[in-house]
Design a protein around this nucleic acid. Structure first.
Lengths: 341, 341
DNA sequence: ACCAAATGATTAAACGATTAATCCACACAC
DNA sequence: GTGTGTGGATTAATCGTTTAATCATTTGGT
């Protein structure tokens, strides 16, 4: 005895009006041939009965679940809220639901998470890989959001151009020595950003890179980055590869009584939640999440519609690099002319 | 012609082994009566064919979709990643998937988002309301995570006790004048935290409250909070109602060359991502997301199992207030003895 | 007036899994 | 020998929706 589903179904509406279920279905979907008046009456009656179609029944018949998966191997990433919101928005606009799956950073559980989604019958999924984990073409269409450098990537922000924009901004402010602060040299995204920054440096400018993870492995977690010392060495600008690291740099400088931006400039990436409310507010580059999500979803839907040829086809559209936008706030300013070597 | 679902189904396994579908179903679920050897053979064959059961078929028959909804009316809230992770973890452990729905802060779209979830056939949902939006008992079991003060709340952190812990900590450090910094006086959570802080103040201590939203309505978004002035007035401790506001306060103080914690202490709430990496690291109180999610999910599942009596029953367990944990870091210290009035 | 075509609705067959009901042997007891 | 019980499998109904095929009726054309 399957528990009686609450609410009316097609047949209840049908018998209640003395017509067949097919007619009701046709009237509500507008697909078959139903007279204008009858269709109207059926819709009216369905609405007043509070009819909601059973996705299960529909999915079983049509083979389309109407659900997409969102795989986030690093859900602790603070840009997740924006991303999830953008994906959910784009998916909802396309009439899809979004099922989330987290693999908690573990590469092994990533495939498990993907499997869970497949078992739940998602029609496709958006994957944001933690590192450069190659996505083994799963049993369903996939869109990958990471960076253009990642094989199989579908759409991503143009991290290289974003880096270039930061470097160009610092160059125009007269900075000569730039310290790039990243977390992990193994990240494709961070490497692209580093490359972008370097490409934007002008003759006479130089840069070095500080990897926090490497430093912490030596000095322990939460250790000082030694930025005050770097300032004394002549660095006037600190370009972090994420707003989180920018925040760390900024507060460390402030703690050491180095005024930002008059003595040193700090920039970040991603325009995270806090970047506009801190003092000084943070100059950063923002990803156009809305556009990225839109492209990812539409690409995914396109793959879904034309699947059948092969499984796990990865669609690569032409416009897969979405430009980042420089947001100039208070944390970046002209280089101190007395300190430029 | 419904598009042929990829992969084998029960009947393919059945015919391939020359048995009936029912036997295959029984063997895989272990429910009916199947001989040991045959069951083993069936499982083996199913595994090697890579059989994954169709959730659609199962859901249609059993009436259980195996999916829960997560409604986040304020997805921009930075504690969302932790929360989503905890919920997803608890739901996955219980064999459920999690469908997210965002109403982008708009109260009107909240019911729309809930409806979308119901249409997708979720068996129940976890709702984190933005404000004190009363959840109209939907057409499915609901668990509300907000604060004990919210009517219909199912489980929440004990914000009052958390506030008390902060106040007690500041009292022990010798602080006398505490400025509470909140965002919005309309939030149940923030009000509970204020009440908790006040309840922890000892004789001789006093507090005032600063609402940022009110201030910004006058002075514009991103305006200074005027904390340096407050320090001059004699405040030695700033207790923010969220780590985001604590970060704002901390950076503003540092910018004005007021050292934390030697000249003023700053505390927050929620232990958000940045609280451990900034300098000085932030003293805060953390919600036990894991426990909260666990209680919410198990309460939800209990409601689901015993439903049928009435729709939208809200289960309230006895242990619906989960204690918060004080995390002492560097941003709080002894009150400057020369400045205590 | 008669055939063709269009219209409006119904019938019935799926989709894939679950499960109550049934059936078939075979063993055991009286 | 007939009745009872049981382990092991099958039959068939069902969940709710979609849709191809069909049927009945009216309309239009010649």
């Amino acid at each position: 005895m399957p528990p009686a589903r609450p609410g009316p179904n097609l047949s209840r509406i049908a018998t209640s009006l003395g017509v067949s279920v097919a007619t009701v279905s046709n009237a509500l979907s507008g697909k078959g041939r139903v007279s204008e008046q009858l269709a109207e009456k059926i819709k009216e009656h369905a609405a007043e009965l509070g009819y909601v179609p059973s996705q299960a029944g529909r999915a079983l018949r049509t083979g389309r679940s109407g659900v997409l998966g969102l795989v986030l191997p690093d859900i602790a990433n603070p840009l997740f809220p924006k991303l999830a919101q953008a994906i959910e928005f784009a998916a909802t606009a396309a009439g899809y639901g979004v099922l989330i799956a987290d693999s908690r950073g573990d590469v092994a559980t990533q495939s498990e998470a993907i499997n869970r989604l497949v078992e739940r019958g998602v029609e496709g999924m958006v994957i944001i890989p933690r590192r450069a984990t190659r996505i083994s073409a799963a049993a369903c269409p996939v869109a990958v959001i990471d960076t253009a450098s990642t094989p199989g990537n579908t759409v991503a922000a143009d991290h290289i151009q974003g880096g270039w924009a930061i470097a160009n901004h610092l160059a125009e402010l007269g900075h000569r020595r730039v310290l790039i602060i990243g977390n992990n040299p193994g990240s494709n995204v961070q490497n692209d950003r580093v490359g972008g920054i370097r490409s934007g440096l002008r003759p006479g400018m130089s840069s070095a890179t500080l990897w926090i993870e490497t430093l912490e492995r030596q000095n322990g977690s939460g250790c000082s980055l030694g930025l005050a010392e770097k300032v004394r060495e002549g660095y006037t600008a600190f370009a972090a590869l994420s707003d989180l690291q920018a925040l760390r740099a900024l507060t460390e400088l402030q703690r050491d009584s180095i005024d930002v931006p008059s003595m040193a400039s700090v920039t970040g990436f991603d325009d995270l939640i806090w970047s506009s409310v801190i003092t000084p507010s943070l100059t950063t580059v923002a990803m156009d999440m809305h556009t990225i999500a839109e492209i990812a979803i539409s690409s995914l839907l396109q793959t879904i519609q034309t699947r059948g040829s092969r499984e796990g086809v990865l669609v690569t559209s032409a416009a897969d690099r979405v430009p980042m936008q420089l947001i100039v706030r208070q944390s970046s300013g002209p280089a101190d002319p007395t300190r430029i070597s």
